Amino acid sequence: MDVFMKGLSKAKEGVVAAAEKTKQGVAEAAGKTKEGVLYVGSKTKEGVVHGVATVAEKTKEQVTNVGGAVVTGVTAVAQKTVEGAGSIAAATGFVKKDQLGKNEEGAPQEGILEDMPVDPDNEAYEMPSEEGYQDYEPEA
């Protein structure tokens, strides 16, 4: 019985440690998101679009440190934060509304985080759909 109880105690310690790591990862992701939003706020009209992409990228980098179902929630929060940063930029006159959601080359930025393969159960990952990809044929 002692062996059984000791095993359960060790398992509990492992769960607590994993929860603490997840909590730490979420806190880091939130900190990076805040950094990115402050970065966007300090940019001029020309830099705002690039700044919004930076927020998304920093958040995406930190999301990889967070495991399990938390990833889905962090990704949703990050996307809403990026959308909010863009709205703030438009409201303050840093950028025109028609410039939001495009990178410096004018290509749409939507789907940055949505296409990231995420499995809350950590069982399997699927690649994003290939609808947006084109076949590449090298020139002879």
Score class of each variant (00 low, 15 high):
Glu110Leu: 13
Ser42Asp: 04
Glu139Val: 10
Pro120Asp: 06
Asp121Gln: 02
Glu137Ile: 03
Leu38Glu: 03
Pro120Asn: 08
Lys43Phe: 13
Met5Val: 08
Thr75Ala: 14
Gly41Ser: 12
Ala27Cys: 10
Leu38Ser: 03
Ala30Glu: 00
Leu38Lys: 06
Ser129Asp: 11
Pro117Thr: 09
Ala69Ile: 14
Ala91Asn: 08
Met127Asn: 09
Glu28Val: 12
Tyr133Ala: 08
Glu137Gln: 06
Lys60Ile: 11
Met127Glu: 15
Gln99Pro: 03
Ser87Cys: 12
Val66Asp: 01
Val70Cys: 04
Ala56Gly: 05
Ala78Gln: 03
Ala85Thr: 06
Glu126Ser: 04
Gly31Met: 15
Val82Cys: 06
Ala89Trp: 14
Lys34Ser: 01
Thr22Cys: 06
Val66Gly: 02
Glu131Thr: 10
Gly101Leu: 08
Met127Arg: 05
Asn122Ser: 08
Ala140His: 06
Gln79Phe: 03
Val70His: 01
Glu114Val: 09
Tyr133Arg: 02
Val77Ile: 12
Glu61Lys: 07
Ala69Ser: 12
Glu83Asp: 10
Ile112Asp: 06
Met116Tyr: 06
Thr64Leu: 10
Gly41Asn: 03
Glu130Met: 07
Ala56His: 11
Pro128Cys: 04
Pro128Ile: 09
Val15Leu: 08
Gly86Ser: 13
Val48Leu: 12
Val16Met: 15
Glu104Trp: 05
Val70Glu: 01
Gly51Trp: 14
Ala90Phe: 10
Asp98Tyr: 05
Gln109Trp: 15
Gly68Val: 10
Val37Ser: 01
Glu114Asn: 07
Asp119Asn: 05
Glu105Cys: 03
Asp2Arg: 01
Thr64His: 12
Val70Gln: 01
Thr75Trp: 15
Val49Glu: 03
Gly84Ala: 15
Thr72Phe: 13
Pro120His: 12
Glu137His: 06
Lys80Pro: 02
Met5Arg: 15
Gly25Ser: 14
Lys43Pro: 00
Val71Arg: 07
Tyr136Ala: 06
Glu131Arg: 08
Lys32Tyr: 11
Asn65Val: 09
Glu126Asn: 13
His50Met: 14
Glu139Leu: 05
Leu113Arg: 09
Val26Asp: 00
Gly84Ile: 13
Lys34Thr: 02
Ser129Arg: 04
Asp2Trp: 02
Glu46Pro: 02
Glu139Asn: 12
Gly111Tyr: 12
Val77Glu: 02
Ala69Met: 04
Val71Ser: 06
Val95Asp: 05
Phe4Lys: 00
Thr59Pro: 01
Gly36Ser: 14
